[in-house]
Simulated scan of single mutants.
Amino acid sequence: MQIHVVKKGESLWDISRRFGMPMDQIINVNELESPEKLLVGQAIIIPTAAPSTAKPVIDVNAYTINTGETGASEIHEVGKDLTYWMPFAYRMTDAGGLEAIDDSAMIQASIEEKVVPVLCITNFSATEAGSTLAHTILSNTNIQERLLTNIITLMKDKGYRGINIDFENVLPADRVLYNQFLQLTVDRLHPEGFFVSTALAPKVSAEQKGLLYEAHDYEAHGRIVDFVVIMTYEWGYRLGPPQAISPLNQIKRVLDYAVTVIPRDKIFFGFQIYARDWVLPHVAGTEAETFSQQEAVRRAVQHDVAIQYDKTAQSPFFRYADDQGQTHEVWFEDARSAQAKFDAVKQYKLRGISYWVLGYSYPQNWALLEDNFTIRKRM
């Protein structure tokens, strides 16, 4: 495949003739909703035949936040491109229990798509940071043993094959306790035939300060668990100022550190697949709107604005004025930014990619993913 960036005055017919590719094929692979109106700066995938070359084999994971039949349909939609699937999330309780989610249809969908279902547990929620809950669990071995017994029972009953532990906002003083809990988890789950993974905040050094980072010991996680998902996204936070959500220059700083202490074949590159729209001027605490990449392009078409590309962050963006005259800034992902991230996965020789989160339409990503890699199936 090739990526073509639309120039001023170009039409789809011009592009079709230039590459010798039927317009309907270009429309289908990009799922163009307004093919008659391409934007300057819009990235278009051209599904041209390429020489046959060996593609790197990687694992691909994806989280879901929707449950029930909705989550199941999301798994079916892209299941052929997934190795693992993780529902977010079973929340732990201070008694060592787990708050259930509606996951039966999703587990069935993952099995039908030959995607390994992975239980995801966490300590936080939309309203609680989870620091106190994490401390309660990590400081009490009786609660930990009870929690792990409940986890093993649930995994056997439901058909999960492994676990993803997402402890966030852990108190810095609990760093060693967290490492000890991970070792205990591996000691309990490995003999039962289950693998153990963790989610890690995006650190650039072992000394990085902050509640999100200090208790996440990269070296220990890399040594103890089977693989890690590095959450390399959310620089463009929904409550923060507008910027690229997953800027590649920042991601590479994280990876430069990570590969010095974690085996490369244990690292999943975190890739967000949604867009955000901020109102300008930004007021601290004001929440940006989150939606799909397709919706981002739709808004650019609606307001007839050119798409720009930040070459440092390797991310597209644009500004527009709404009907009330309010200025907005939108950051999203396109074919160029996806390809740049895939190139980084190859450059760093990582185990794979982990998507946060299914439910946002991004057809260019999946087409390019298949063009760049062979997706390993473990079922």
Rank of each mutant, 00 (worst) to 15 (best):
Q243H: 06
E145F: 00
R238K: 11
Q208K: 07
D226E: 05
L189A: 10
P191A: 10
H221N: 14
Y160M: 00
T185W: 04
G162R: 05
A220F: 01
I163S: 05
F167L: 07
L239C: 01
P241M: 09
L182N: 11
R161N: 04
A199S: 13
G222S: 12
V229H: 08
I230S: 06
D226G: 02
I165E: 08
M231G: 09
P242V: 08
P202V: 07
H190D: 10
I152F: 03
R238H: 09
I151P: 02
Q180K: 14
F167N: 02
T149G: 03
A220M: 07
L200Q: 13
G236V: 09
V186N: 02
F195E: 10
K203N: 05
E207N: 14
D157S: 14
T149C: 00
E234R: 11
L184M: 15
D217C: 02
P202E: 08
R175E: 13
I224V: 15
F195K: 11
H216A: 05
N169F: 04
G210R: 12
H190S: 08
S205W: 00
G210C: 05
F181N: 09
T149R: 06
A215P: 09
A206C: 00
I165T: 08
Q180M: 13
D174H: 12
L182C: 12
G236N: 05
G240S: 10
V225Q: 04
